[in-house]
């Protein structure tokens, strides 16, 4: 089992990450998820800034990947989160899971995203035509964790 975690301002390449995951031996399934900067309904989003807690964010993401590894038999986990200022449609986050079977890969991918959204010290600020706003945490994201209890 290998875990790769990165917090970076640079963009990532989904194809490169996928090919890395394919190289893991014994894996019959790969699930990937990419999160992007979403347009607001009125096209007023100019950009979004992602702030993080250097050091803690990397530790938190690694801990989440390790938790996933303990719950399912996984061949590899790649977890990348970008920070800094991003434009609409840019990539924010990548989760890639390689495992022997698809059920574990799908479940681990959802588990990692649910925990990332509640435990990793990252914050979004939207820069819009009407001003700058910190994104509020959603109760639906908090409730999503209960399915893993």
């Amino acid at each position: 089992m290998s875990i790769f975690v990165a917090v970076q301002s640079d963009d990532f390449c989904v194809a490169s990450e996928y090919n890395e995951l394919r190289r893991q031996s014994g894996c019959g399934a790969i699930v990937t998820f990419s999160g992007l900067v979403r347009e607001l309904s009125d096209n007023q989003l100019h950009s979004m800034t992602l702030e993080h807690y250097p050091g803690m964010t990397e530790q938190a993401l690694s801990a989440i990947a390790e938790q996933a590894q303990q719950r399912w038999q996984l061949g590899a986990v790649h977890l990348i989160h970008r920070v800094g200022t991003l434009k609409p449609h840019e990539q924010i986050v990548f989760v890639g899971i390689a495992s022997a079977h698809r059920a574990a890969a799908f479940a681990a991918c959802e588990f990692i995203m649910d925990y990332l959204k509640n435990r990793a010290p990252l914050w979004k600020k939207e820069h819009t035509s009407n001003g700058d706003y910190w994104v509020a945490a959603k109760t639906s994201d908090q409730h999503a964790l209960t399915r893993w209890d």
């Binding site: 992602l50 986050v93 990332l116 959204k117 990793a120 010290p121 914050w123 979004k124 910190w134 945490a137």
Partner: peptide, 10 residues
């Protein structure tokens, strides 16, 4: 020690 609001990454 660090204090912060609820997180909103992802």
């Amino acid at each position: 020690l660090a204090f912060f609001p609820p997180v909103t990454g992802g």
